[in-house]
Simulated scan of single mutants.
Amino acid sequence: MTKRIFTKKEQEQLKCNPYVQAVSEKAITYTDEFKRHFIAENDKGTSPREIFEEAGLHVDLIGLQRISSAGKRWRAAYRQTGVEGLQDTRKTNSGRPSEKELSLEEKIARLEAKNQLLRAENELLKKLDLLERQMLKKKSQSKRNENLN
């Protein structure tokens, strides 16, 4: 981790960003939504720096090392466990993991919750794809109109 310390003013500036969950002097916690967005955009070939800049997170403030480290961490977590690996589980996973055997009802409830999460993720990706196609269509139409004039 970088040794750069954020001033109070910088912390306040970062907290105003909708993709930032929390900020301290030494660390930034990003929202799960931003992590999913990062993975989706990075898979399309967008550089980590561009993704952060487009999200309003200035590279000069955050630092390239932090951006690079976060990207590596998120990609590794995503490869290992999928979308669940991107979630901040610090509040839910405190202490030792439970060693008790889950009942059939508990197993079903967990699988249903996981299924619901995956469906929501699929819907989000469909919406993103639709928006991207619409933007590309508008760009190509505006270029055609410019060529006609």
Rank of each mutant, 00 (worst) to 15 (best):
M1I: 04
M1C: 03
T2P: 04
T2M: 06
K3P: 02
R4W: 07
I5L: 13
K8R: 14
K8M: 10
K8L: 14
E10K: 04
E10V: 09
E12I: 09
K15D: 06
K15E: 13
C16H: 14
C16A: 15
N17R: 10
N17T: 09
P18W: 12
P18Y: 11
Y19G: 08
Y19T: 08
Y19P: 05
V20R: 06
V20Y: 10
Q21D: 05
Q21E: 09
Q21S: 12
V23T: 13
S24E: 07
S24V: 07
S24C: 09
E25M: 07
K26G: 10
K26A: 12
I28M: 00
Y30G: 01
Y30T: 02
D32G: 01
F34C: 01
K35N: 08
K35W: 00
R36C: 08
F38S: 00
F38I: 04
I39V: 15
E41Y: 04
E41S: 06
N42S: 08
D43G: 04
K44V: 02
P48F: 00
P48N: 00
R49W: 02
E50N: 04
I51G: 02
I51Y: 06
F52A: 01
E54H: 13
E54Y: 11
G56V: 10
G56N: 08
H58C: 03
H58Q: 12
H58W: 09
V59Y: 11
V59K: 12
L61Q: 12
L61P: 08
I62G: 00
G63W: 00
Q65N: 08
Q65R: 13
S68L: 04
S68V: 03
S69G: 05
S69H: 07
G71I: 01
R73L: 03
R73Y: 02
R73P: 00
A77E: 12
Y78K: 11
Q80W: 01
G82K: 03
V83F: 13
V83H: 12
E84M: 11
G85S: 08
Q87H: 12
D88N: 14
D88V: 06
T89Y: 05
K91P: 00
T92M: 09
N93R: 09
S98E: 13
E99Y: 05
E101H: 08
S103T: 15
S103W: 09
E105C: 08
E106A: 09
E106Y: 10
K107F: 11
K107W: 12
I108Y: 12
I108H: 09
A109T: 12
L111Y: 15
L111S: 11
E112P: 01
E112W: 04
A113I: 06
A113S: 14
Q116Y: 11
L117K: 14
L117S: 12
L118E: 11
L118F: 13
A120W: 10
N122H: 12
E123H: 10
L124W: 15
L124D: 15
L125G: 02
L125A: 03
K127N: 10
K127R: 13
E132Q: 13
Q134F: 01
K137V: 04
S140D: 13
S140N: 14
S140V: 15
Q141A: 06
S142E: 10
S142G: 00
R144D: 02
L148H: 07
